[in-house]
Write a protein that binds this DNA or RNA. Structure first.
Lengths: 110, 110
DNA sequence: AACATTAATCGTAGCATTGCGATATAATAA
DNA sequence: TTATTATATCGCAATGCTACGATTAATGTT
């Protein structure tokens, strides 16, 4: 085993899970925070910023790129990364939607 | 290797990652959605609701309980689960805080 | 052309996650 | 007490994730 039974859950449930997984590592959160602050940066900046080897940073960037949260543009020998605003808002909205549900019971349950 | 270098990241980055990881599986999202809708339920309800074996459901419940998002109360032979409102709001706020940062550049970057 | 710089990819090691059957535990019911 | 019901935990198998050194690929520089 070891494989999530994706097909048995709703699209929304899988979407939340997918987006949450992208945020489920401090390095990826750090990358996003850095991009939010600097607007744009090259891979090398992140390698200096993060306590990880170049190969590892590149791998995290690949994951963020895979779900579309960031995009990279080749600029000479460097690659310039930035957040994809549209996807960023979509992820925010999907997560917000989950948390927007009111909690009916308040400590009185169970 | 294979261990996240937690100690080299900020508390906020680790917190986002930890909370996101809890949401990073459709079964756990489904559990939370079910609890939001029903307010409260016993483990057996979730076993019927989810396409997973009892042992697996129990394991996902354990993870959600571990970070404090849900709490369980023994009621006879059953265990009644519900969302911990305080933690729920904390998770929401931590994630919201990340997404509240304005994105300065708009497609013009890179 | 030869070299340097930058980033991606490969290969591998090790731990983590998912899933489930089987078993253990705990409370109630007969 | 014995059986029943409801959960949790154990042990295992399969897969995924994290990390990094080494290599490759692509571009720029001399």
């Amino acid at each position: 085993m070891g494989v999530t039974k994706t097909q048995n859950f709703t699209q929304e449930q899988n979407q939340v899970a997918t987006y949450a997984k992208a945020l489920a590592h401090p390095a990826r959160v750090a990358i996003l925070q850095y991009l939010l602050k600097k607007q744009t940066c090259i891979c090398g900046d992140l390698v200096e910023e993060l306590p990880l080897a170049q190969a590892t940073v590149s791998q995290h960037l690949k994951e963020l790129k895979a779900i579309g949260l960031i995009k990279g543009t080749v600029e000479g020998t460097s690659v310039c990364y930035c957040i994809d605003q549209h996807k960023w808002e979509e992820v925010r909205d999907v997560l917000l939607n989950l948390f927007s549900s009111p909690i009916a019971c308040q400590d009185s349950c169970c």
